[in-house]
């Protein structure tokens, strides 16, 4: 099973992954710090003031990356969950478990910063815009996955049940996005459009992309760290103890 000389499958076992993750975390953390620092510098000191929105637009340097991350992380989480269901691979489920809280946090931040941006720009803290609504539903789904996992004691069932729900949610979010857009065209009243964004200067785009990369690195670092927690916590489960029967260990895997 070797792949270009390196045995990748070696790292699919939790015991081998734990030290590997430990070595990778400092690098990703450093990259996150540097990228977020550079992004903030460009965002606050290089990017010009927007002539329509004034300086309030600078919120997008944290809002857009947070919103993107919330969606990326959901898709990645669902992909791990699907992989786990397909291959019956425990580490995949553990990855999905490790990603969920970070994704939920970014979703919450995207909503919070969105309303902080909306108040000065639209004059309202909340608008039933398609993006905001689907982001809200995304937050509910993250919370649902975390709570579903938390309320199942049997690890194997918890892994698989939350994976099924994560996959169902992947279908749901785009449907909600389009249905709310459709719904908004029906209710012409609240016709505040977020899509009619003003043309952005190149430095603004750069700041946004650098911040997004920084958030990516941050997410990887935090996810790996949480993955380590999950591995250690699960090793304490009875099925992993030295006295466990072979059958129990086999079931846990």
């Amino acid at each position: 099973m070797s792949f270009t000389g390196i045995n990748w499958f070696k790292y699919s076992s939790p015991q081998a992954f734990h030290p590997l993750a430990g070595r990778m975390i400092p690098w990703f953390s450093a990259a996150a710090l540097v990228l977020i620092g550079v992004g903030l510098y460009i965002g606050f000191f290089v990017a010009p003031t927007d002539f329509q929105q004034g300086d309030a637009y600078r919120i997008i340097f944290v809002h857009v990356p947070a919103a993107w991350m919330s969606m990326f992380l959901y898709v990645i989480m669902a992909a791990w969950a699907g992989l786990g269901l397909g291959l019956n691979a425990r580490p995949s489920f553990m990855m999905a478990q490790a990603i969920a809280p970070t994704g939920a946090m970014f979703t919450f931040l995207a909503l919070l910063t969105g309303s902080m941006w909306g108040k000065p720009t639209w004059g309202a803290w909340w608008v039933w815009d398609a993006r905001l609504t689907s982001e809200l539903i995304l937050l509910f789904q993250y919370i649902g996955i975390i709570l579903l996992r938390a309320s199942i004691d049997d690890l194997r069932r918890a892994d698989r049940a939350s994976a099924v729900f994560a996959l169902v949610g992947v279908v749901n979010v785009p449907i909600i996005y389009f249905s709310v857009r459709w719904w908004n065209t029906l209710h012409q009243g609240a016709s505040v459009s977020m899509t009619a964004s003003p043309k952005m200067a190149a430095t603004m785009v750069t700041a946004m992309l650098v911040m997004t990369l920084g958030f990516w690195m941050y997410s990887i670092a935090v996810t790996l760290a949480r993955m380590r927690c999950v591995i250690v916590e699960r090793e304490r489960q009875p099925a992993w103890g030295k006295n466990a029967s072979i059958q129990e260990v086999a079931e846990a895997r």
Binding site: G54, A56, I59, P120
Partner: peptide, 18 residues
């Protein structure tokens, strides 16, 4: 922040805090 300080700093502060 050109009069928008409250909004901008709340956003960045909350993100950093989280």
């Amino acid at each position: 922040m050109g009069g928008y300080g409250l909004y901008v700093w709340t956003s960045f502060g909350a993100s950093a805090l989280c």
